[in-house]
Design a protein around this nucleic acid. Structure first.
Lengths: 336, 336
DNA sequence: AGAACTTTGTAGAACGTTCTCCATTGTTAG
DNA sequence: CTAACAATGGAGAACGTTCTACAAAGTTCT
């Protein structure tokens, strides 16, 4: 009451016990009588005591988990966050997000900062780093990596099953009668391995092969413009595809524009499918067939794995979350 | 090198000085010779020392600023974040984001958590709280509130000039020759005051009055469905409006769908304008006229004000950021 | 040359927790 | 009745910083 904060000492004084005893009660540690329990709990309530996380950090846990975001514009990152916080809602862990930026350097700065703030564990979403850097971080703090295939021994990983996602799309289109199905992917100069778009492209190839069809992959970029350019090139061909599977919804929107401009109606002349199921895909005016990643499950899984690891698991786990295909108005049978 | 972290004591030992001296150098405090400076800096580099934020927190600054996000899906929140981090990039402050959720209760939990982690200052984005709760937070830590009109004495505020934004739209439409211009706003049951949509609606009324026109406000909700329903109702009238100004882009998308379904072409039969200039508004297929808030400037301003306040300013400041109108394809002269 | 400052470096006490011992009980066994 | 043990509460040392005093040394002024 003197200055600012209510400390454990204030509570101890009020309850007429030692600070050590209060600490035990707060932590739910062994060796407190029922009487002590109620006495202290009451004092805590009366004074409105909350443990000071920074002080805790100096000794043990800080009950803070960090989520490093590589790209705050990533359309399904809110879902992942929701999954994480939802899973953690009834625990005493708090989640803080760190905008890491796109550059490896800024991402490293952010993870360092999180370690300096003694966070108990880190979830890294689509980190752009070498495996060595990731391993170094994982050596300092429990880590779960989201969105990178091919996890390592030092940390856990949660990925969308992009191979399956691509197969769902191809199967769907083949089922409708399509045989000339092209795929637009993203051209990446980074040396990082196992990025989602690569796996999607590979899944597409596998699925086409499984149906005995020839694959046709064009690499532009995952932007509206990239989808537009890619589609324009594909649609200018003699045996133009009857369906285009874009590796990201934003590119699929560009494909739709290209179809518009070419005077092709969707889905009669051209079927279009995307990936990510971003919010506007469901708008009736767009109604884009897309693969949904269930970011909620991904986030919740990441949170679960992280807590497990903090609490002692050392064996590394990789969890693969199955996507689902959301069929909407942009895919249909090809015109004969 | 023994166990985990390099501490200030390790640096002091290496440089052959006291820990107090190292602390001075690290903090750039007064009273260090050039020789001491270089000696210590070298030791720091050699050992790769980084100050432990949690330990710092126990004494003074933690060099951490918190940004509470009420809604991670808010389309321009990435811009605000970028503005904040951009402004702070060359300082030693780190920014951490706290997903506060939509509920007052969860938001309070998050701000508490941020205070418990002794953050040096807080930016609250569109907080859903009573003024009293805000004041209580501001009493504990420097605060800048973003996106709520009518700031209080205890904290700084940064707002988009929503009155001006609404006026820009009305002026534009009137300039094109429209006289029957309707506005779709959001229906809020919350007791909070000064929320952006209220100010936009008020700005719309003022602007209409200034042109000697009758206003026409319909309250549904800022969702695609809300825009659709609102537009359907407006378009069913005898003297249907020739232009609809939706208070949010997402609602404007619903308006566009309603126009589609009513067989009205945009902008010939109906002009449509939105607010927020969300990413897809610029897609050629949508090409929505909208008001741009420049989240970048808003974020940068908030960061600047917060640092000023942390460093001692007590007089309260409210900063109003001017929006701009982005004219695209959904607005045009009315058909005579 | 001494007094009065200024500059530079250090000791050591905080900060608010946790956690390892210990001391004091009470209980059970012999 | 005493020895052995379990249960409970408390003392006090960490944890890694900052920061107030203060001591030592150097400088300037008379």
């Amino acid at each position: 009451m003197t200055s600012g904060r209510v400390t454990i000492a204030d509570v101890a004084r009020r309850a007429g016990v030692s600070t050590a005893a209060v600490s035990k009660v707060v932590r739910g540690a062994y060796g407190v009588s029922a009487e002590m329990q109620t006495k202290v709990t009451q004092a805590i309530d009366e004074l409105g005591y909350r443990p000071h996380a920074a002080a805790r950090a100096l000794r043990g846990r800080t009950y803070t988990l960090g989520v490093m975001l590589s790209d705050t514009r990533n359309p399904f990152f809110p879902d992942i966050i929701e999954g994480v916080t939802g899973r953690l809602g009834d625990t005493e862990y708090q989640v803080l997000l760190g905008p890491g930026g796109i550059e490896p350097k800024t991402q490293a700065r952010m993870t360092d900062a999180m370690i300096d703030r003694s966070m108990d564990g880190l979830i890294l979403i689509s980190p752009v780093m070498t495996d060595a850097e990731l391993a170094a971080i994982a050596a300092a703090v429990p880590v779960v990596v989201v969105g990178r295939h091919g996890g390592a021994a030092a940390y856990d990983a949660v990925v969308d099953d992009d191979v399956m996602g691509a197969r769902l799309v191809v199967d769907h289109l083949v089922g409708l009668g399509h045989t000339r199905i092209a795929h637009i992917t993203h051209l990446e100069r980074a040396r990082a391995q196992g990025l989602p778009h690569m796996v999607r492209a590979e899944g597409y190839r596998q699925a086409m092969r499984a149906h005995g069809l020839a694959d046709d992959v064009l690499a532009t970029s995952f932007t509206e413009e990239g989808g537009f350019e890619g589609a324009r090139e594909l649609l200018a061909r003699d045996d133009r595809p009857t369906a285009i599977f874009a590796g990201a919804d934003i590119a699929a929107l560009g494909v739709l524009r290209a179809a518009d401009e070419a005077g092709l109606s969707v889905p009669e002349d051209l079927s279009v499918a995307g990936y990510d199921n971003i919010g506007i895909a469901s708008l009736k005016r767009i109604s884009l067939t897309s693969v949904d990643q269930d970011g909620h499950v991904i986030g919740a899984t990441a949170a679960r794995l992280l807590v497990e690891r903090i609490e002692g698991r050392t064996r590394s786990v990789t969890s693969s979350v199955s996507p689902t295909l959301i069929v909407r108005g942009t895919t249909g049978p090809p015109r004969r």
